[in-house]
Design a protein around this nucleic acid. Structure first.
Lengths: 352, 352
DNA sequence: GTGTATAGTGGAATCGGTTCCACGCGTCAA
DNA sequence: TTGACGCGTGGAACCGATTCCACTATACAC
């Protein structure tokens, strides 16, 4: 039933007719089937070019039962950290012809709504970034028979995943501070937000491990959990400095909070790093501007690898249910707030 | 030809059979055709619920020749400004069942590659955000017969668009500074980046208009264009302060540069706002932390409106080629860096 | 020379929707 | 009573790909 349309599309049948072959053969060429004779293949390629043929994605999608698209779900798109991960994903997917749909979660409640948008007929796979992968998620993925990969989430999710070694990151920071002569090193970290993943426990673990290794005293009054905001950091430092024996150095679980710590330090008349050494976490863009020594989490790499993992699931190179865990290790970025370096004049910096 | 698959899907034919009607009628119900009798409609709804029927997107896409997806193209996803616009778009689209694909441009060269991904069989429409809409873009959209909407781009693109009144924004800032008693008001703005759109000229225009309205002297040595970065702002202020008659206030064309201005001020021993009043632009997240008075560009609104504009094109409510221009006006956010308010102790702030 | 494997190919059914066209049936004007 | 009309509906032909199955021609073993 010829519906009205403009100049009707060049279809696979047109190509077949002009090339003097059957549609099946054209389709085989399109899909790289090696059974086609080289001469035939060449001829078909020539005709396709001549007619300007392009296979229709929607028709392929119906026939092959796949969409060549994936869904990316991540929280708080407005945070630099997540945007960078997204960039990594985009980079990896650009090398394929797979498109991606995006769903960002702003509030915890968005989760269930997002789960409903996970549909087999919409995408071929799902990337879950920095999310608490609940049983509801797993059930949905199972029901829709959708492969998924996970990045920066809990360590024990039964899906292929990229795990960030936050404990190692914390150890790097603490060891560095100890090496600079500090013996009283405190921790200010973000809360165990149910909306994000349980990452504090691993950073806390690394912090304690490092202190023990170094033979330093573990003091619970040095472990502070404050909100994931600049003010949170400010509050944290005020509390710490009221202790009878205040720390001389702080490892802060996010650069955002670290900014607050730097501000509080100045308000308290402390000079960073002389009176207080500070090391942050993440290496978001403001860290450099603040001259903040921090632990860099390789965000783009995380995104890229997670995408590649999902692609392997899609191509079948990775069997469904196969256990794959890839670790990513953070890296120490030394700037000025720790005291390891003299600040160069005019570069702006600490406490700005 | 029954291909292998798991439990085969519930199709429209199953629904028709169980409900005792033809497939055409079920399809009509799905598409809200009022010609179907109420009783029939009810019965079909019941059967759909009972069987757990969900129409297959890919099949609809092939048949209706539309994908129910749109493409969003924007630059520099890592900038807060653009991410916020994206959030607005997402908000608007969530209210529909239209998905979106994302393409972000990091370098000017990415443009041509992005143009190639604009395909009729991939999406039903395109949103171009903060981009220079070149003839190549327009030609491609024409060729693919794809409707598009534009936000925060040149004023004279022949597409439905959301235009931000940057001239008005600049006037707000300058008038405010004048009202606080300033007579020597300088401008530091970002360059006319070919990668982004020509927005500086409009801000510059507003700056000059305001000065003229107020009867203040226009001095070209007060108009500075520096890179779109913190350092750019720093450089800008150093230059201004070396003038024989330096300004007492600066309007800065981006909060990022304004941060640099605040930093430079402190380095020069100037106290903000006593010795120098500063007003920024955009109201990105750091502005509040810096106590920066700024001109807020309603980013989410821009995204939301642009998306709605595109939806109107898709639904046909907006005729192809119809001229629609919607203006968005920025708003002045008064904090501390302009001197209009005393800073409350403990709130952090200027020069931080 | 006959049988069998194999490489290369074409026809037609199929994926699951949409929509054109035809048709039955009541209502109403002539 | 008849014809026109419109409402509600069903059948079947599409949309443009993929892929199963059947078929031919050639190569090879016996």
């Amino acid at each position: 039933m010829a519906r009205r349309g403009g100049a009707s599309r060049v279809t696979i049948r047109d190509v077949a007719r002009v090339a003097g072959v059957g549609v099946a053969t054209v389709s085989r060429v399109l899909n790289g089937d090696p059974a086609v004779a080289a001469a035939t293949r060449e001829r078909i390629y020539a005709v396709m070019a001549q007619l300007g043929y392009q296979p229709l994605r929607t028709a392929r999608a119906l026939s092959r039962r796949r969409t060549d698209a994936v869904l990316v779900v991540l929280p708080l798109l407005t945070r630099f950290f997540y945007v960078e991960i997204l960039r990594g994903i985009e980079e990896a997917l650009l090398e394929t012809n797979i498109a991606f749909l995006l769903r960002s979660l702003e509030r915890p409640a968005d989760g269930s709504q997002a789960i409903a948008s996970v549909r087999r007929d919409l995408v071929d796979g799902v990337l879950l970034i920095s999310l608490a992968v609940t049983p509801a998620w797993l059930a949905r993925l199972e029901r829709e028979r959708l492969p998924a990969a996970v990045a920066d989430a809990d360590q024990d999710v039964p899906l292929p995943r990229i795990v960030v070694d936050h404990a190692a990151g914390a150890r790097l920071a603490v060891r560095h501070l100890a090496q600079l002569g500090h013996r009283r090193i405190a921790l200010i970290d973000r809360p165990d937000d149910p909306f994000a993943e349980k990452r504090i426990s691993r950073r806390l673990l690394g912090y304690r491990q490092a202190l023990q290794e170094l033979g330093l005293e573990l003091r619970t009054e040095y472990e502070h959990v404050t909100p994931f905001s600049v003010e949170g950091g400010t509050m944290g430092l005020y509390s710490l400095m009221q202790l009878p024996v205040p720390p001389t150095a702080v490892f802060v679980g996010s650069d955002t909070q670290a900014w607050g710590v730097l501000r509080a330090a100045r308000q308290l008349g402390l000079e960073v790093p002389r009176d207080l050494a500070v090391v942050g976490y993440h290496d978001i863009e403001i860290a450099e501007l603040l001259g903040l020594t921090t632990v860099r989490v390789p965000m783009r790499v995380i995104g890229r690898r997670a995408a590649q993992l999902l692609l392997e699931c899609l191509s079948g190179r990775l069997a469904r249910g196969e256990e794959v865990v890839e670790w990513v290790t953070p890296e120490l970025i030394i700037r000025y707030s720790c005291g390891a370096r003299r600040r160069e004049p005019g570069t702006g910096g600490v406490g700005e």
